[in-house]
């Protein structure tokens, strides 16, 4: 097996597993998502927190490196506010519109188009005005 094929197999497996899990949990269901954000039902909130704890425990016990992460720049907070607002009104963090489409919600294509336009716009805005350092090399 070549080195080009191997990452595709691994990524394909984890992509499929993520889509399957998100669909079985209900992240593509707007009613469930709104119930999570308004604490009307704690199931998905606990899922999110529990996933962080599970991954954290695995990283802590089975890895030795402790990456410090990307630098904190002036764009983190406004970017997170924009993302949180967009997630709440469209139901789409970047993987969720794909999950919604896989469940049969055709308008999710419009959310995906919006995400693509937003990402292209941000790169231009960052090059021209913001100059935020995303710290890609530190990830």
């Amino acid at each position: 097996m070549t080195s080009t094929v191997r990452p595709h197999i691994a990524v394909a497996f984890f992509g499929g597993a993520l889509g399957l899990s998100l669909g079985m949990i209900g992240f593509g269901d707007f009613a469930e998502l709104n119930a999570m954000f308004t604490f009307g039902d704690l199931r998905m909130f606990l899922t999110f927190c529990g996933a962080v704890v599970v991954a954290g425990a695995l990283f802590f016990f089975f890895t030795s490196d402790r990456p410090k992460g990307a630098p904190i720049h002036r764009g983190i907070v406004p970017g997170a506010v924009l993302f949180g607002t967009g997630w709440a009104i469209s139901g789409g963090c970047p993987s969720i519109p794909i999950v919604q489409l896989g469940t049969g919600y055709l308008p999710a294509v419009v959310t995906m188009a919006g995400i693509a336009v937003g990402m292209r716009a941000y790169r231009k805005l960052n090059a021209k005005y913001f100059h935020f350092d995303g710290g890609a090399c530190a990830l």
């Binding site: 764009g75 983190i76 970017g79 469209s90 805005l125 960052n126």
Partner: peptide, 18 residues
């Protein structure tokens, strides 16, 4: 949906992740 998607697109890249 489109505006929400644009906000997610700009926001996740500005914040450096999702």
């Amino acid at each position: 949906l489109f505006v929400g998607g644009v906000m997610v697109g700009i926001g996740t890249r500005m914040a450096g992740g999702c």
